[in-house]
Amino acid sequence: MTGPLMERRVGEVVQSTSTSFVAQCYQLEGAPALGGLVRTDSPDIYGVVGSVTTEPLDSARPVLARGEDAGSEEEVIRDNPQLARLLTSRFEVFIAGYVEDGVTHQYLPPRPPLVHSFVYACDQEETARFTSQLDLLRLLLNSGASHSDEIVGACIRQAAPSHDQPADFLAHACRALAVELSADVARLNSILRRVAP
């Protein structure tokens, strides 16, 4: 049990608010995909990856282009092994709910995750279980992110393959979305186009 869980550990919370948190990846470029479902421990807080950033650790030392003479991109990394230590990947997660005493609540937890909590990417089974309810869509739509439509679309796309009947899940999710966005057909339409198989 510890093994697979260890494998799915992708980072650690470094900044936390009631609605979102930022996690730093252990591996450069090791962030989960946009829209992917992640979880922190104790309590189990779930969230959807809303943005991924890779930047220099020291903001005073901007990254410089180094590949002018290199034959390939791999060569750049090989010739500058220090790069992995100077850069870091972070991802922002919008909180989508939490599980307490085995009960899933798709609304904001009373307290945000603790800083330094480990962040795990959810496996298929966990994703399917958590997305069997779709109240999280409303949290994502109202996340305040400038690209919240993209996050919602990506979330639905990411979650679909985890379900036994992906097509049914898609249809169900789109109807739920239609109910949430019943007063704004233009926005609904744009998300539907992102989700359509």
Binding site: L170, A171, C174, R175, L177, A178, V179, L181, S182, V185, A186, L188, N189, L192, R193, A196, P197
Partner: peptide, 19 residues
Amino acid sequence: YTPIPADDPFVIQALQGTV
């Protein structure tokens, strides 16, 4: 007044009965 892709059954299915 919103252009809807009427030939896309997926979109139509989502809109019908909801919006």
